[in-house]
């Protein structure tokens, strides 16, 4: 029973990881490509880590939860990387399929407000 669950989680995780990179390879402009790794890869690795936690917890050596830490870390950091990458792309005014909004070159002025 636990084997089926594990197999499902591992396959789903690997599939989502693959789809993330596949989107990175396939989509046409940077802003669209950004979506693929941020979402798909994060969930893919998350479910792989869940499978790993389940695997080691059922091997009889007690609960194994430090995978949760990596998952948590990835879920917190992936959006931050995505946000900064898209901000950098807007700053450089990369070509986009969507209509670029005006006055986006102000990455500098925006970052200044980070400091009190």
């Amino acid at each position: 029973m636990i084997d089926y669950l594990l197999s499902f989680l591992i396959l789903a995780g690997a599939l989502f990881t693959f789809i993330g990179s596949f989107g990175l390879w396939r989509l046409q402009d940077f802003y669209s490509r950004l979506h693929a790794p941020t979402k798909a890869t994060t969930l893919g690795v998350g479910s792989l880590l869940l499978a790993s936690a389940l695997f080691f917890s059922t091997r009889g050596e007690g609960l194994s939860l430090h995978e949760v830490l990596v998952t948590l870390f990835l879920f917190i950091t992936a959006p931050v990387s995505a946000h900064l990458l898209s901000k950098a792309a807007l700053h450089l005014r990369l070509r986009s399929l969507a209509e670029l909004p005006e006055d986006t070159a102000g990455g500098e002025a925006d970052s200044k407000t980070d400091q009190p």
């Binding site: 591992i10 995780g13 690997a14 990881t17 993330g20 990179s21 990175l24 940077f30 490509r33 950004l34 790794p37 890869t41 994060t42 893919g44 690795v45 792989l48 880590l49 499978a51 790993s52 695997f55 995978e67 990596v70 990835l74 992936a78 990387s81 990458l85 950098a88 792309a89 450089l92 990369l94």
Partner: peptide
């Protein structure tokens, strides 16, 4: 473009984490 390469590098890091977890299992 440069952001494309950075994004690819970031994805490679996350894929490496996935590979290491699989190796652990």
């Amino acid at each position: 473009s440069l952001p494309d390469r950075i994004l690819a590098l970031d994805t490679l890091y996350v894929d490496a984490v996935a590979l290491l977890v699989l190796l652990g299992i």
